[in-house]
Simulated scan of single mutants.
Amino acid sequence: MAGDGTIEKVSIIISKGSLEGVYPGLIMANGARAEGIEANLFFTFFGLDAIHERRWERVRLATVGNPGLHLPTWVGALPGVSALMTRYMARRMDRLDIPPVPEFVEMIADTGAGLYACQASVDLFGYRREDFIGQVKDIITVGEFYDLAAGGQIIFT
C-alpha cells in the first residue's frame, strides 16, 4: 500500500475450477487493472482449469452441494443440471457484458496482469507448460508467488 492508503498491487489466488470459483478472481483482477493496480493471478489446484488449453472453455457451475443455488444436493447431482445451470448463468452474465472465461482471461492478460500456474499443482496433475494457454507467464512455486506478491495484498478466492 502507498503511504496514502491506496492499494498498488494485488495477487489473487484462484483455487477452484468452477464458474463460481473462477469468476470472483477474474472480476477482482479486471477491476484492479481498470484502477491502475498491478495484478497477478496464481492458479492452483482445480483453478488451473481456467488457464488449461483444453479445459478453459468448459468451466462449469458446481451444482452439487452449492448452497448459493438453493437446490437440494440430489437435484444438483441429476444428469444435465450442471450444464443447464451453466447455460443459464452464461446467459445472465452475457446480459451484463461479463465475458466467458476464455475471453475474460485473455482480456485480463492483455491489460498486463500476470497469469501464473502453481508448480506443485502442475506436478500433482502431471501437466506440462504446453498444456496451458499462451498468456500464462510462468509456472512458479509458492515461494516465488510470495516474492511476486511482496508489498501488495493477497486475495484468496
Rank of each mutant, 00 (worst) to 15 (best):
E8Q: 12
N30Y: 15
V101T: 02
I98A: 01
M28V: 06
M93H: 09
P24R: 03
I108Y: 02
S15P: 10
L124H: 15
T44G: 06
K137V: 13
Y127G: 04
K9G: 02
L26S: 07
V81L: 11
D94F: 03
R128L: 13
A109G: 07
V64D: 13
A117E: 05
P100H: 02
S15A: 14
Y88T: 12
F132S: 03
D138Q: 09
A2S: 15
A34S: 10
I12E: 01
R60W: 09
P102E: 00
A50I: 00
L19V: 01
V64L: 07
P67M: 08
G31V: 04
M85A: 09
I7M: 13
I7E: 14
G47Q: 07
D94Y: 07
T73G: 14
T44W: 05
G25S: 05
Q119M: 06
V59K: 00
G80S: 01
A117N: 05
Y23E: 02
T111A: 04
I51S: 00
N40Q: 12
L41S: 01
C118P: 15
M93F: 10
N30G: 14
F42N: 08
V101S: 02
M28D: 11
L61E: 05
A39P: 12
E144C: 03
Q119C: 07
D110L: 04
Q135V: 12
G65E: 13
T63K: 08
S11M: 06
T141I: 01
G151Y: 07
G25W: 04
Y23H: 00
A90Q: 05
A77P: 15
A83W: 07
G112F: 07
A117V: 11
S121Q: 12
A120F: 14
G31Q: 12
L84C: 12
L71A: 00
K137R: 14
M107C: 09
M93A: 04
L48V: 05
T86R: 00
A62Q: 15
V105K: 00
I51H: 00
G143P: 01
T157L: 02
R129K: 08
L26C: 03
G134F: 04
L19T: 03
F104Q: 04
R92A: 13
H52Q: 02
N30M: 14
V64G: 11
L96K: 08
L124V: 14
A83Y: 09
Q153P: 13
V64R: 14
E53W: 15
R92M: 10
R54C: 08
I12Y: 08
W74D: 10
M28I: 07
T73I: 14
E35I: 14
G134Y: 08
A120I: 11
R129M: 00
K16A: 05
M28E: 09
F156L: 13
T141S: 11
M93Y: 12
W56Y: 15
M93P: 15
Y146T: 15
A90T: 07
K9P: 07
I14W: 04
T44S: 01
S18H: 05
A109W: 02
L84P: 13
S18Q: 10
A150S: 15
M107V: 11
N66T: 05
P67W: 11
I37V: 02
V10G: 06
L96C: 03
